[in-house]
Design a protein around this nucleic acid. Sequence first.
DNA 1: TTGCGGATGAACT
DNA 2: GTTCATCCGCAAA
Length: 193
Amino acid sequence: MALPAAFYERDTVTVAKNLLGCLLVHCEETGTTAGRIVEVEAYLRGDPAAHSYRGETKRNSAMFGPAGHAYVYRIYGLHTCVNVVTETEGAGEAVLVRALEPVVGLDLMQARRGTDDPLSLASGPGKLAQALGITMDLNGTSLRDGPLQVRSPANPPELRPEDIVQTTRVGITKAADLPLRFYLKGNRYVSRR
DNA sequence: TTGCGGATGAACT
DNA sequence: GTTCATCCGCAAA
């Protein structure tokens, strides 16, 4: 089931950690694809690495929109990345979804990714967007009742603090030392590096 | 109007 | 470990 609005209206680090284990589901005509979130990164207000750092622009406006919506952007001209907007409206904070453990629609993901190796279907922000067929038109859409949704799994496994690894974020040049990356300990589907 | 560089991934050496 | 594919919003001018 979709998560309540209150889930997203908390501090971003808390939301990031609680997104681990949740499902990211994309329903469309060609079929449904879904994966379990195993790796995320938090981007905060006043954080030089965050797209919102220099204020609201056309590109990042979804980050300043309501919590529980998607911020989707294109990077390096070719890859698409998905964020979950958090906090109070206007804060400009979000959680980047970095890796999924494929759960539903493996065949569709394989076709889109051009590989049948489950470990490389969605183990990276660009990969997971490609695997789920996420495009820029999902930018700003609600993750609670849109075509792209975050849901809690049917039987939420007990997640203890020691099951979550906290470390530095990947691929950024500014504020690279902040420990705002979180992933499930020992999970084989997290991105490398 | 233009030039730049980035929250990446794949294919190289 | 290094290279490069390939786009667009943004800041500077």
